[in-house]
């Protein structure tokens, strides 16, 4: 490569306002994330209208900071990439319209990136992706197994039929009375536990790579009610550990099975729940046993950020993918291949 290519990434799909500059799709030059967790906490979850209002306050600041930290000016950039969907529509619109204005003002190409493609490409920032690969995407909105045969090709082989894994975590956290965001705290409680309650695992049909977590969530709620009806009190650690074991077991077994069936060169994990320590440990052990390389980005790249958007956007840019100024937020955008 004779020239370095710098891509600006912008991400506002939920409650982080983020901007980043990535070099050649693999090297983070700057990554700024302004989180709304402190403001959203008092509402017990993300309030979409408040998310949108905070994005407007932060958006130009984070882009400016990303440029400053990288010591670059807009004319050094090759393209502007932004999360097009899925996500909260009002939140997406802020990033998208800022990206459009920035691209127009600086006469740069604009590229709309799928949020989950971004999560997958976060891995490109820590290790080169080798194909075919299997990606396990686990977050508050997603639980998916995707096979990639080359850059930009996504084949969905399994997904959740009800709750996403992260959603189940947040709901169980609420049952345990943990403040928002509760998912990581369930992980902490589970790790600190020496015992666990036995909750069911939803394997679904024998050949299916699909997931289901709503039954498990109901089991946890029923268990709590039963104990409390008898005047007892549940042990939070044991419940968290049992719940976590059930989720992690299903995710691990299905991931390993798919990795073998599709004969992949590597398995990668992506999304907010990929930050879960229990899941990381379980996948590492199981895949090591099979001799399949397993990669998962550091926690800062598992949670929402803009470097991952720029990393995916770089590959799209290289493939000639372009959006125009009529780009709209797509809250239910499906993950589609850009290379066939």
């Amino acid at each position: 490569m004779d020239k370095n290519h710098y891509i600006l990434g912008i991400e506002t799909s939920c409650d982080e306002t983020a901007a980043s500059i990535v070099k050649n799709g693999t090297e983070i030059i700057s990554s700024i994330v302004s989180s709304q967790i402190q403001q959203q906490k008092q509402f017990g979850g993300v309030v979409p209208e408040i998310a949108s209002r905070l994005h407007v306050e932060q958006i130009t600041l984070v882009i400016q900071e990303a440029l400053n930290e990288a010591k670059l000016v807009p004319s050094d950039l090759e393209a502007v990439t932004v999360t097009e969907g899925p996500g909260l529509v009002g939140a997406l619109l802020i990033g998208i319209n800022a990206a459009k204005a920035f691209a127009f003002a600086n006469q740069l190409p604009l590229i709309g990136v799928h949020h989950i493609a971004g999560h997958v490409y976060a891995n490109q920032l820590i290790h080169e992706m080798e194909f075919p690969l299997l990606a396990l995407i686990v977050s508050g909105g997603h639980t998916e197994l995707v096979v990639m045969k080359s850059h930009g090709s996504f084949e969905l082989i399994g997904e959740t039929r009800d709750d996403a894994a992260g959603e189940a975590y947040d709901k169980v956290a609420r049952v345990l009375g943990l403040p928002y965001p509760g998912g990581p705290q369930v992980d902490q409680l589970a790790l600190a536990s020496d015992e666990s309650i036995d909750f069911p695992r939803a394997w679904l049909e024998k050949d299916s790579y699909d997931f289901s977590f709503s039954g498990l969530k109901s089991s946890v709620i029923n268990y709590k009610h039963n104990i409390e009806q008898k005047g007892g009190k549940i042990n939070h650690n044991h419940v968290a550990a049992g719940f976590q074991q059930s989720v992690v077991d299903v995710l691990t077994v299905k991931t390993v099975k798919a990795a073998k069936e599709y004969d992949v060169k590597q398995v990668i994990a992506a999304g907010g729940v990929a930050a879960n320590q229990g899941l990381r440990k379980s996948l590492t052990t199981a895949l090591e046993k099979e001799g399949i390389p397993f990669y998962v980005p550091p926690i800062s790249l598992c949670t929402d950020n803009a470097a991952m958007i720029a990393a995916a956007g770089y590959e799209m840019w290289k493939s000639g993918v372009r959006s125009d100024l009529s780009m709209n937020g797509r809250p239910g955008m499906p993950l589609k291949s850009w290379n066939y």
Binding site: R53, V56, I59, G90, N97, A98, A101
Partner: peptide, 16 residues
Amino acid sequence: TGVRIGVTIAKTLAWT
């Protein structure tokens, strides 16, 4: 939403 779109575009243009 309408106000935010105009304001986001205007402030991004003005800044950059």
